[in-house]
Design a protein around this nucleic acid. Structure first.
Length: 138
DNA sequence: GCCTTGACGGCAA
DNA sequence: GTTGCCGCCAAGG
């Protein structure tokens, strides 16, 4: 289990776990949804510490260009690409997701209440609950 | 306790 | 329109 001392970490977990199947989002969108547009880098950093046990669909998280930046985290980008293809995610190029067709903006499509809850205070909310649901998918 | 790195993003040249 | 550089925040060494 990776240490999640910061709130952002659990926030990121919650958002990533909320990404619907067949959709992908970017580090920037996630960071923006959390109220930290300049902290996109941190989101990626959080992902690097993600445990498979978390059940987080990190394959649905790509960079602003749609490139599978963390593809090698799965052992090989091709694996991640295959997983996304199975979900119906279109690819504009090799290891590059077609964001135009499957981009998912948490700040827009995710429940405002959830965002407000995680942005305001994550003390009450337990993102693990949502993750538990996604646990089976992963 | 300090310095470097990091699954990135946005802005400037 | 494209390429390059700087910036943020936290964790690891």
């Amino acid at each position: 289990m990776i240490m999640q001392r910061g709130e952002f970490t659990e926030k990121v977990y919650a958002v990533v776990a909320s990404i619907p199947e067949g959709r992908v989002t970017t580090y920037g969108r996630i960071a923006l949804a959390l109220g930290m547009p300049r902290n996109a880098r941190r989101v990626g950093w959080v992902m690097s510490g993600v445990e498979r046990a978390r059940g987080l669909p990190c394959q649905r998280v790509v960079n602003h260009a749609g490139y599978l930046s963390g593809g090698w985290a799965f052992g090989h980008p091709d694996l991640m690409q295959a997983m996304l293809l199975e979900e119906g995610v279109p690819f504009s190029s090799e290891y590059v997701v077609d964001l135009h067709a499957c981009v998912w903006d948490p700040a827009e499509e995710l429940d405002p209440e959830t965002l407000a809850a995680m942005r305001g205070c994550s003390c009450g909310s337990t993102p693990a609950d949502e993750v538990d649901d996604l646990d089976e998918i992963a």
